[in-house]
Design a protein around this nucleic acid. Structure first.
Lengths: 155, 155
DNA sequence: CCCACAACGTTGATGCATCAACTTAACCCT
DNA sequence: AGGGTTAAGTTGATGCATCAACGTTGTGGG
Protein backbone atom coordinates (compact mmCIF):
# COMPACT_ATOMS: atom_id res chain seq x y z
CA UNK A 1 0.00 0.00 0.00
CA UNK A 2 0.92 3.63 -0.27
CA UNK A 3 2.15 5.54 2.69
CA UNK A 4 -0.35 7.95 4.15
CA UNK A 5 0.03 11.34 2.55
CA UNK A 6 1.70 13.80 4.86
CA UNK A 7 -0.57 16.81 4.57
CA UNK A 8 0.69 20.22 5.54
CA UNK A 9 0.09 21.28 9.09
CA UNK A 10 -2.01 24.42 9.63
CA UNK A 11 0.93 26.74 9.90
CA UNK A 12 2.57 25.37 6.78
CA UNK A 13 -0.67 25.53 4.89
CA UNK A 14 -1.27 29.11 5.97
CA UNK A 15 2.20 30.14 4.78
CA UNK A 16 1.74 28.35 1.47
CA UNK A 17 -1.69 29.84 0.86
CA UNK A 18 -0.57 33.35 1.68
CA UNK A 19 2.36 33.05 -0.64
CA UNK A 20 0.32 31.62 -3.50
CA UNK A 21 -2.41 34.22 -3.26
CA UNK A 22 0.05 37.06 -2.88
CA UNK A 23 2.11 35.98 -5.82
CA UNK A 24 -0.90 35.51 -8.07
CA UNK A 25 -2.34 38.86 -7.14
CA UNK A 26 0.95 40.66 -7.52
CA UNK A 27 1.97 39.15 -10.83
CA UNK A 28 -1.55 39.52 -12.18
CA UNK A 29 -1.78 43.17 -11.30
CA UNK A 30 1.63 44.00 -12.63
CA UNK A 31 1.03 42.36 -15.96
CA UNK A 32 -2.36 43.98 -16.37
CA UNK A 33 -0.71 47.30 -15.54
CA UNK A 34 2.07 47.03 -18.06
CA UNK A 35 -0.48 45.98 -20.61
CA UNK A 36 -2.73 48.96 -19.86
CA UNK A 37 0.09 51.48 -19.56
CA UNK A 38 2.08 50.54 -22.58
CA UNK A 39 0.13 48.11 -24.70
CA UNK A 40 2.90 45.57 -24.25
CA UNK A 41 2.57 42.20 -22.60
CA UNK A 42 4.72 41.30 -19.63
CA UNK A 43 6.67 39.04 -21.96
CA UNK A 44 7.34 41.90 -24.37
CA UNK A 45 8.52 43.98 -21.46
CA UNK A 46 10.97 41.48 -20.10
CA UNK A 47 12.42 40.74 -23.51
CA UNK A 48 12.97 44.38 -24.27
CA UNK A 49 14.47 45.11 -20.86
CA UNK A 50 16.92 42.27 -21.21
CA UNK A 51 17.78 43.13 -24.74
CA UNK A 52 18.41 46.81 -24.14
CA UNK A 53 19.98 46.71 -20.68
CA UNK A 54 22.21 43.72 -20.98
CA UNK A 55 22.76 43.43 -24.70
CA UNK A 56 22.84 47.03 -25.81
CA UNK A 57 19.87 46.39 -28.04
CA UNK A 58 21.36 43.48 -29.93
CA UNK A 59 21.82 39.94 -28.80
CA UNK A 60 22.16 36.43 -30.11
CA UNK A 61 18.93 34.54 -29.98
CA UNK A 62 19.94 31.82 -27.54
CA UNK A 63 21.90 34.19 -25.38
CA UNK A 64 18.72 36.16 -24.90
CA UNK A 65 16.75 33.02 -24.19
CA UNK A 66 19.26 31.93 -21.55
CA UNK A 67 19.28 35.34 -19.96
CA UNK A 68 15.57 35.30 -19.27
CA UNK A 69 15.56 31.54 -18.71
CA UNK A 70 13.11 30.68 -21.44
CA UNK A 71 13.05 27.75 -23.78
CA UNK A 72 14.11 28.58 -27.28
CA UNK A 73 10.73 27.70 -28.67
CA UNK A 74 8.99 30.13 -26.39
CA UNK A 75 11.45 32.82 -27.32
CA UNK A 76 11.08 32.12 -30.99
CA UNK A 77 7.32 32.50 -30.89
CA UNK A 78 7.65 35.60 -28.76
CA UNK A 79 10.15 37.18 -31.13
CA UNK A 80 7.86 36.42 -34.03
CA UNK A 81 5.01 38.28 -32.36
CA UNK A 82 7.22 41.17 -31.32
CA UNK A 83 8.67 41.46 -34.80
CA UNK A 84 5.15 41.61 -36.19
CA UNK A 85 4.47 44.55 -33.87
CA UNK A 86 7.72 46.23 -34.81
CA UNK A 87 9.38 46.03 -31.40
CA UNK A 88 12.33 43.92 -32.49
CA UNK A 89 13.79 42.58 -35.70
CA UNK A 90 15.67 39.44 -36.65
CA UNK A 91 19.05 39.78 -38.28
CA UNK A 92 21.24 37.17 -39.87
CA UNK A 93 24.47 36.22 -38.27
CA UNK A 94 27.52 36.52 -40.47
CA UNK A 95 29.81 34.06 -38.77
CA UNK A 96 27.20 31.41 -37.96
CA UNK A 97 24.85 30.53 -40.73
CA UNK A 98 22.32 28.97 -38.39
CA UNK A 99 22.30 31.82 -35.97
CA UNK A 100 20.29 34.99 -35.58
CA UNK A 101 20.58 38.28 -33.85
CA UNK A 102 17.61 39.92 -32.23
CA UNK A 103 17.74 43.69 -32.29
CA UNK A 104 15.54 46.23 -30.60
CA UNK A 105 14.04 48.66 -33.10
CA UNK A 106 13.68 52.37 -32.36
CA UNK A 107 10.03 51.69 -31.59
CA UNK A 108 11.18 49.01 -29.18
CA UNK A 109 13.49 51.44 -27.42
CA UNK A 110 10.79 54.03 -27.22
CA UNK A 111 8.33 51.54 -25.79
CA UNK A 112 10.65 50.26 -23.11
CA UNK A 113 11.86 53.70 -22.13
CA UNK A 114 8.32 54.81 -21.57
CA UNK A 115 7.20 51.66 -19.84
CA UNK A 116 10.08 51.06 -17.46
CA UNK A 117 9.57 53.98 -15.07
CA UNK A 118 5.90 53.22 -14.74
CA UNK A 119 6.64 49.60 -14.10
CA UNK A 120 9.09 50.46 -11.36
CA UNK A 121 6.51 52.68 -9.76
CA UNK A 122 4.04 49.83 -9.69
CA UNK A 123 6.59 47.47 -8.21
CA UNK A 124 7.24 50.04 -5.55
CA UNK A 125 3.64 50.69 -4.82
CA UNK A 126 2.52 47.07 -4.70
CA UNK A 127 5.54 45.32 -3.28
CA UNK A 128 8.38 47.45 -1.95
CA UNK A 129 6.14 49.81 -0.01
CA UNK A 130 4.32 46.94 1.65
CA UNK A 131 7.32 46.13 3.81
CA UNK A 132 9.87 47.92 5.92
CA UNK A 133 13.43 47.85 4.61
CA UNK A 134 14.32 45.13 7.07
CA UNK A 135 11.33 43.05 6.19
CA UNK A 136 12.12 43.46 2.53
CA UNK A 137 15.65 42.30 3.09
CA UNK A 138 14.40 39.28 5.00
CA UNK A 139 11.88 38.48 2.33
CA UNK A 140 14.52 38.67 -0.37
CA UNK A 141 16.89 36.52 1.62
CA UNK A 142 14.28 33.84 2.17
CA UNK A 143 13.27 33.91 -1.49
CA UNK A 144 16.86 33.41 -2.48
CA UNK A 145 17.13 30.57 -0.01
CA UNK A 146 14.14 28.82 -1.57
CA UNK A 147 15.60 29.37 -5.00
CA UNK A 148 18.96 27.91 -3.97
CA UNK A 149 17.21 24.97 -2.42
CA UNK A 150 15.34 24.26 -5.64
CA UNK A 151 18.41 24.60 -7.79
CA UNK A 152 20.12 21.87 -5.84
CA UNK A 153 17.43 19.48 -7.02
CA UNK A 154 17.17 17.99 -10.44
CA UNK A 155 13.60 19.02 -10.85
CA UNK B 1 8.83 67.46 -17.77
CA UNK B 2 8.48 64.17 -16.07
CA UNK B 3 10.01 63.51 -12.72
CA UNK B 4 13.12 61.39 -12.76
CA UNK B 5 12.19 57.77 -12.35
CA UNK B 6 13.03 56.48 -8.92
CA UNK B 7 14.84 53.26 -9.68
CA UNK B 8 15.14 50.59 -7.06
CA UNK B 9 18.25 50.70 -4.92
CA UNK B 10 20.50 47.63 -5.06
CA UNK B 11 19.03 45.99 -2.02
CA UNK B 12 15.48 46.48 -3.24
CA UNK B 13 16.38 45.22 -6.66
CA UNK B 14 18.06 42.15 -5.23
CA UNK B 15 15.00 41.33 -3.16
CA UNK B 16 12.69 41.82 -6.12
CA UNK B 17 14.83 39.74 -8.45
CA UNK B 18 15.15 36.89 -5.98
CA UNK B 19 11.43 36.86 -5.42
CA UNK B 20 10.58 36.90 -9.11
CA UNK B 21 12.99 34.19 -10.05
CA UNK B 22 12.00 32.02 -7.11
CA UNK B 23 8.34 32.35 -7.82
CA UNK B 24 8.71 31.60 -11.52
CA UNK B 25 10.86 28.58 -10.86
CA UNK B 26 8.59 27.25 -8.15
CA UNK B 27 5.31 27.71 -9.99
CA UNK B 28 6.82 26.41 -13.19
CA UNK B 29 8.14 23.27 -11.61
CA UNK B 30 4.99 22.54 -9.72
CA UNK B 31 2.78 22.87 -12.74
CA UNK B 32 5.05 20.73 -14.88
CA UNK B 33 5.02 18.16 -12.10
CA UNK B 34 1.28 17.97 -11.75
CA UNK B 35 1.06 17.71 -15.51
CA UNK B 36 3.57 14.88 -15.66
CA UNK B 37 2.23 13.03 -12.62
CA UNK B 38 -1.44 13.18 -13.37
CA UNK B 39 -1.95 14.46 -16.89
CA UNK B 40 -3.91 17.37 -15.45
CA UNK B 41 -3.02 21.01 -15.80
CA UNK B 42 -2.53 23.16 -12.73
CA UNK B 43 -5.87 24.74 -13.53
CA UNK B 44 -7.60 21.38 -13.59
CA UNK B 45 -6.03 20.58 -10.26
CA UNK B 46 -7.13 23.72 -8.49
CA UNK B 47 -10.66 23.46 -9.81
CA UNK B 48 -11.02 19.88 -8.69
CA UNK B 49 -9.52 20.56 -5.28
CA UNK B 50 -11.89 23.44 -4.69
CA UNK B 51 -14.87 21.57 -5.98
CA UNK B 52 -14.31 18.44 -3.94
CA UNK B 53 -12.94 19.91 -0.73
CA UNK B 54 -15.14 22.91 -0.30
CA UNK B 55 -18.21 22.01 -2.30
CA UNK B 56 -18.48 18.29 -1.74
CA UNK B 57 -18.13 17.72 -5.44
CA UNK B 58 -20.95 19.96 -6.52
CA UNK B 59 -20.98 23.74 -6.65
CA UNK B 60 -22.69 26.62 -8.36
CA UNK B 61 -20.66 27.98 -11.22
CA UNK B 62 -20.04 31.46 -9.87
CA UNK B 63 -19.49 30.25 -6.36
CA UNK B 64 -16.66 28.15 -7.67
CA UNK B 65 -15.28 31.02 -9.69
CA UNK B 66 -15.30 33.27 -6.63
CA UNK B 67 -13.66 30.63 -4.50
CA UNK B 68 -10.64 30.40 -6.74
CA UNK B 69 -10.79 34.09 -7.63
CA UNK B 70 -11.19 33.62 -11.36
CA UNK B 71 -13.25 35.57 -13.83
CA UNK B 72 -16.34 33.78 -14.95
CA UNK B 73 -15.15 33.66 -18.51
CA UNK B 74 -11.96 31.91 -17.54
CA UNK B 75 -13.91 29.43 -15.48
CA UNK B 76 -16.36 28.81 -18.25
CA UNK B 77 -13.65 27.95 -20.74
CA UNK B 78 -11.90 25.81 -18.17
CA UNK B 79 -15.06 23.89 -17.32
CA UNK B 80 -15.67 23.32 -21.00
CA UNK B 81 -12.25 21.76 -21.40
CA UNK B 82 -12.59 19.72 -18.22
CA UNK B 83 -16.01 18.47 -19.23
CA UNK B 84 -14.57 17.39 -22.55
CA UNK B 85 -12.00 15.32 -20.65
CA UNK B 86 -14.64 13.89 -18.35
CA UNK B 87 -13.38 15.44 -15.11
CA UNK B 88 -16.50 17.47 -14.37
CA UNK B 89 -19.99 17.84 -15.76
CA UNK B 90 -22.42 20.71 -16.06
CA UNK B 91 -25.86 20.33 -14.54
CA UNK B 92 -28.90 22.52 -14.85
CA UNK B 93 -30.12 24.39 -11.86
CA UNK B 94 -33.74 23.78 -10.96
CA UNK B 95 -34.50 26.98 -9.09
CA UNK B 96 -32.53 29.36 -11.31
CA UNK B 97 -32.97 28.89 -15.02
CA UNK B 98 -29.81 30.83 -15.82
CA UNK B 99 -27.66 28.95 -13.39
CA UNK B 100 -25.52 25.88 -13.55
CA UNK B 101 -23.97 23.43 -11.18
CA UNK B 102 -20.55 22.01 -11.78
CA UNK B 103 -20.10 18.51 -10.47
CA UNK B 104 -17.00 16.39 -10.17
CA UNK B 105 -17.40 13.10 -11.98
CA UNK B 106 -16.05 9.82 -10.57
CA UNK B 107 -13.10 10.21 -12.90
CA UNK B 108 -12.60 13.69 -11.48
CA UNK B 109 -12.55 12.34 -7.94
CA UNK B 110 -10.17 9.62 -8.90
CA UNK B 111 -7.84 12.06 -10.59
CA UNK B 112 -7.71 14.47 -7.69
CA UNK B 113 -7.33 11.77 -5.08
CA UNK B 114 -4.33 10.44 -6.90
CA UNK B 115 -2.81 13.81 -7.67
CA UNK B 116 -3.19 15.56 -4.33
CA UNK B 117 -0.70 13.55 -2.24
CA UNK B 118 1.95 13.86 -4.92
CA UNK B 119 1.35 17.56 -5.20
CA UNK B 120 1.74 18.03 -1.47
CA UNK B 121 4.99 16.11 -1.59
CA UNK B 122 6.29 18.45 -4.26
CA UNK B 123 5.24 21.51 -2.30
CA UNK B 124 7.09 20.10 0.66
CA UNK B 125 10.18 19.20 -1.25
CA UNK B 126 10.49 22.45 -3.18
CA UNK B 127 9.17 25.00 -0.72
CA UNK B 128 8.48 23.86 2.83
CA UNK B 129 11.75 21.99 3.22
CA UNK B 130 13.76 24.94 1.99
CA UNK B 131 13.13 26.86 5.19
CA UNK B 132 13.15 26.26 8.91
CA UNK B 133 9.76 26.40 10.63
CA UNK B 134 10.51 29.88 11.88
CA UNK B 135 11.63 31.08 8.50
CA UNK B 136 8.53 29.60 6.94
CA UNK B 137 6.34 31.39 9.43
CA UNK B 138 8.10 34.66 8.71
CA UNK B 139 7.83 34.16 5.00
CA UNK B 140 4.11 33.47 5.28
CA UNK B 141 3.59 36.49 7.49
CA UNK B 142 5.40 38.78 5.08
CA UNK B 143 3.48 37.35 2.12
CA UNK B 144 0.24 38.01 3.91
CA UNK B 145 1.39 41.53 4.67
CA UNK B 146 2.08 42.21 1.00
CA UNK B 147 -1.29 40.77 0.11
CA UNK B 148 -3.07 42.96 2.65
CA UNK B 149 -1.19 45.97 1.40
CA UNK B 150 -2.30 45.29 -2.17
CA UNK B 151 -5.89 44.70 -1.19
CA UNK B 152 -6.09 48.16 0.32
CA UNK B 153 -5.42 49.59 -3.11
CA UNK B 154 -7.92 49.80 -5.94
CA UNK B 155 -5.58 48.20 -8.38
C1' DC C 1 -48.41 43.93 -15.36
C1' DC C 2 -44.42 45.16 -17.79
C1' DC C 3 -40.20 47.02 -18.59
C1' DA C 4 -35.65 48.28 -17.50
C1' DC C 5 -31.90 46.49 -15.40
C1' DA C 6 -29.05 43.26 -13.04
C1' DA C 7 -27.29 38.51 -12.47
C1' DC C 8 -25.72 34.11 -14.58
C1' DG C 9 -23.18 32.15 -17.73
C1' DT C 10 -21.38 31.42 -22.82
C1' DT C 11 -18.84 32.50 -26.90
C1' DG C 12 -15.23 34.17 -30.16
C1' DA C 13 -11.04 36.32 -30.92
C1' DT C 14 -6.46 37.00 -29.81
C1' DG C 15 -2.17 36.37 -27.52
C1' DC C 16 0.81 33.44 -24.56
C1' DA C 17 3.03 28.69 -23.01
C1' DT C 18 4.62 24.04 -23.91
C1' DC C 19 5.75 19.96 -26.35
C1' DA C 20 7.48 17.42 -30.06
C1' DA C 21 9.07 17.27 -34.62
C1' DC C 22 11.71 19.41 -38.02
C1' DT C 23 15.47 22.03 -40.88
C1' DT C 24 19.84 23.66 -41.62
C1' DA C 25 24.45 24.65 -40.58
C1' DA C 26 28.60 23.67 -37.91
C1' DC C 27 31.70 20.33 -35.80
C1' DC C 28 34.34 16.29 -35.08
C1' DC C 29 36.48 12.04 -36.06
C1' DT C 30 38.67 8.84 -38.75
C1' DA D 1 36.93 14.62 -47.59
C1' DG D 2 32.69 12.41 -45.89
C1' DG D 3 29.33 11.15 -42.53
C1' DG D 4 27.31 11.10 -38.01
C1' DT D 5 26.37 14.11 -34.23
C1' DT D 6 25.38 18.27 -32.02
C1' DA D 7 23.96 23.18 -32.01
C1' DA D 8 20.76 26.95 -33.51
C1' DG D 9 16.52 28.12 -34.40
C1' DT D 10 11.61 27.38 -36.53
C1' DT D 11 7.16 25.44 -36.89
C1' DG D 12 2.59 23.37 -35.78
C1' DA D 13 -0.57 21.73 -32.55
C1' DT D 14 -2.81 22.15 -28.36
C1' DG D 15 -4.18 24.11 -24.08
C1' DC D 16 -4.57 28.29 -21.13
C1' DA D 17 -5.71 33.54 -20.15
C1' DT D 18 -8.11 37.78 -21.13
C1' DC D 19 -11.23 40.90 -23.16
C1' DA D 20 -15.40 42.28 -25.10
C1' DA D 21 -19.79 41.15 -26.78
C1' DC D 22 -23.68 38.41 -26.34
C1' DG D 23 -28.08 35.61 -24.96
C1' DT D 24 -31.18 34.39 -21.16
C1' DT D 25 -33.46 34.42 -17.00
C1' DG D 26 -34.76 36.64 -12.80
C1' DT D 27 -36.27 40.94 -10.23
C1' DG D 28 -37.85 45.29 -8.49
C1' DG D 29 -40.28 49.75 -9.33
C1' DG D 30 -43.94 52.30 -11.31
Amino acid sequence: MDAQPRWLDPEQKAAWDSFIRMQETLIGRLSRRVQADSGMSAADYIVLVSLTERGNGRMRFLELAKLVEWEKSRMSHQVTRMAKRGLVAREECADDGRGAFIVATPAGYKAIEEAAPQHVEHVRRLFIDALTPNQLKTFGRLSQRILDHMEKQLD
